[in-house]
């Protein structure tokens, strides 16, 4: 249908479909419209940056895409499920199966080893994986922390902590990786490392939705959606930095492997 006419192979099936999303909050006597009729389709395999100043509605959009909240009116389908029709337990299951969260403050549990952090989402999975420890170890190796399995957050640098969080987000094989200002607490060198990791993961097939207010970071994405006053004011696709960088990433990885 229309999808055929769309550019650059968005023939991938739509993963997130928002149609006329409205979200209102009551603040005392005042009713605040955080989202005012937002329609947006994100296909499987995309790397989307959601941008906008504070109060633009991007955080609200992120909460909805993360199935942490439901819209006031309009529909939002995530991985084929209309989240407005789900109860809180079904939303929890959807988050557990389909969405991996990465936060600005990492949100790791104190006094808990990296391995246990990554095993956390599997505690709530149905059915439970048979070898959670092995899966968790595999994910930590994938983010380059194979030698930090039994470290506590305090013993890890910020970048390493964020990698643990990413491994945790990936462990249930979600369709969507939802990152809320993932580099907000990191220096620029570490930020680049983390964004490179996202790019690699995206190249592996996972859909990445990145919420940020930093244009530098948004450049890593292949599509930028700009929010303002509860509306989408700009939605552009472009060649993302990761494409140009990809050769470099693998070169760097090869280099570090060689060094070890």
């Amino acid at each position: 249908m229309e999808a055929h006419s769309k550019p650059e192979g968005v023939a991938q099936r739509p993963l997130i479909v928002a149609d006329g999303l409205v979200k209102t909050y009551r603040m005392g006597a005042e009713v605040v419209k955080a989202l005012d009729g937002v329609s947006l389709t994100i296909a499987e395999g995309e790397f989307v940056a959601i941008m906008g100043p504070s109060g633009s509605g991007k955080s609200t959009m992120m909460n909805l895409i993360g199935a942490l909240d439901v819209p006031t009116t309009g529909t939002l389908a995530i991985d084929g499920r209309d989240i407005g029709a789900l109860d809180s337990d079904e939303l929890a299951d959807l988050r557990n199966r389909s969405i991996g969260f990465v936060f600005q403050q990492f949100n790791l549990l104190p006094r808990t080893t990296a391995l246990r952090q990554v095993m956390l989402p599997m505690l709530y999975a149905h059915p439970k994986p048979e070898n959670p420890e092995e899966l968790a170890r595999h994910r930590l190796e994938q983010v380059g922390l194979g030698d930090r399995l039994n470290h506590h957050p305090r013993q890890l640098s910020g970048g390493q902590q964020q990698r643990v969080a990413i491994a945790r987000a990936l462990v249930n094989n979600p369709k969507i990786l939802l990152a809320d200002e993932p580099t907000g607490a990191l220096d620029s060198k570490t930020s680049d490392e983390i964004m490179r990791l996202f790019t690699t993961l995206n190249a592996g097939g996972i859909t990445v939705v990145l919420v940020t207010h930093e244009p530098d970071i948004a450049e890593w994405a292949s599509r930028r959606v700009l929010f303002k006053d509860g509306h989408i004011v700009e939605d552009v696709r472009h060649a993302h930095r990761g494409v140009a960088d990809r050769g470099m990433v693998s070169a760097a990885q090869r280099g570090s492997e060689a060094a070890e």
Binding site: L68, S88, D89, R95
Partner: peptide, 11 residues
């Protein structure tokens, strides 16, 4: 966090 990664109220 536990809720975000799929923990239900009863968990």
């Amino acid at each position: 966090l536990r809720m975000a990664v799929g923990g239900k109220g009863r968990d």
